[in-house]
């Protein structure tokens, strides 16, 4: 009975993502059509003349009423039609699809890194208030939210590439000397390992490390902060007192009673962290010339390739909704109190 209830809740969560997706589509439509200025001019690009703008206007159906335009916009999206990128001449969807794995590899690896550091740091800081770990945590947290990723990235480059020479040159995912491995997962490191090519995997990993650390430093702060704060709050709770008064061992009180409760707000915070990470991803990709969708968007911005930028925003938003969905599902499975409200 309990299992099927959980399943129902998970399905409900999936359904709840629908309005979010609709909102995203509506906003991205409004951003293109309803703002002052002529979208046809944007889509035609800076080199367009009167005639090509008029052509584009008719081609895009911009002479029709807004609601109609919205429906045909949804129709286009459902067919994966995001327009042509004028800077590369390729369909935007193709461009995004080919670059998305690079962004995902970077973002997910960075998140993994920061989780591995932030969780223990937050836990240690919460259980040993005013110790050196606590102070370290405070410094890292404050510094982490104050450092702009693009600045951290450049600083790390200067130290590890220019001064020390440990890092490879910031030229994308793989040095020219290596051939990219056959695509399985989309991650160069994993694919190379799967292909039995440790040399290429090492090279890809070397390229990945510095940008991932840059991004990880940025996302580390909110996770560590929340872990520490949540655990401190839980440990002050009355049920912790009960557990202590019942003579439970310290470890059991800390992990089974404390941490399992404290992890819930941390999971919730991850949503915000993903939001930060996906945004900062754009900056990191630019600094390290990482060939993901972020640097694609930045290049497109420079030449006013609007269809590309719009496709990028949509792609990021959908990605974010999916990540949030994942968080919601995990939360639903972890917390027994989640009920069928609303």
């Amino acid at each position: 009975m309990r299992v099927s209830n959980k399943l129902k809740l998970v399905l409900l969560r999936l359904l709840q993502a629908v309005p979010a997706l609709f909102g995203i589509v509506l906003v991205s439509f409004l951003l293109t059509r309803a703002l002052p200025g002529d979208p046809a001019v944007y889509f035609a690009g800076p080199m367009a003349d009167e005639q090509s703008i008029a052509e584009i206007r008719q081609q895009m159906g911009l002479d029709r009423p807004l609601p109609l335009q919205f429906f045909s916009y949804i129709g286009d999206l459902l067919q994966g039609e995001l327009g042509q990128s004028i800077s590369t001449g390729q369909p935007v969807l193709t461009e995004l699809a080919s670059r998305l794995p690079a962004s995902l590899e970077l973002t997910l690896f960075a998140l993994l890194l920061s989780l591995l550091v932030a969780l223990p740091l937050g836990i240690l800081a919460a259980t040993r208030p005013n110790s050196w770990v606590d102070h370290l945590c405070r410094v890292v947290v404050t510094a982490g939210v104050s450092l702009p990723t693009f600045f951290t990235g450049l600083l790390l480059l200067y130290i590890f590439y220019f001064l020390l020479g440990w890092a490879p040159s910031p030229m994308g995912r793989l040095d020219f000397a290596y051939l990219p491995p056959e695509t399985v997962t989309g991650s160069f490191v994993i694919d190379a390992l799967l292909a039995g090519d440790p040399e290429t995997a090492r090279a890809a990993f070397a390229q990945l490390l510095l940008p991932a650390i840059t991004l990880g430093l940025f996302t580390l702060a909110p996770i560590a902060r929340m872990t520490r704060a949540a655990l401190i709050q839980v440990l002050e709770g009355e049920f912790i007192r009960t557990a202590r008064a019942a003579g439970l061992a310290r470890r059991k009180v800390l992990y089974r009673y404390g941490l399992r409760n404290a992890i819930l707000p941390v999971i919730t915070t991850l949503g915000m962290v993903f939001s930060f990470a996906l945004g900062a991803n754009v900056l990191v990709e630019k600094v390290f010339a990482w060939p993901g969708i972020g640097s694609f968007a930045v290049e497109a911005l420079v030449v006013s390739d609007y269809a590309a930028v719009q496709g990028f925003v949509l792609c990021m938003a959908v990605l974010f909704v999916l990540l949030n969905l994942l968080i919601d599902v995990i939360y639903t499975l972890v917390d027994p109190r989640v009920r069928m409200e609303s």
Binding site: G23, L26, V27, F274, F276
Partner: peptide, 22 residues
């Protein structure tokens, strides 16, 4: 609903989109 829609975007990316469009 309005806030949820704003929050459905990675915020920096939304800012990029707004500036690019406006």
């Amino acid at each position: 609903r309005l806030l949820d829609t704003i929050m459905a975007f990675p915020l920096f990316v939304l800012a990029m989109g707004i500036v690019a469009a406006a």
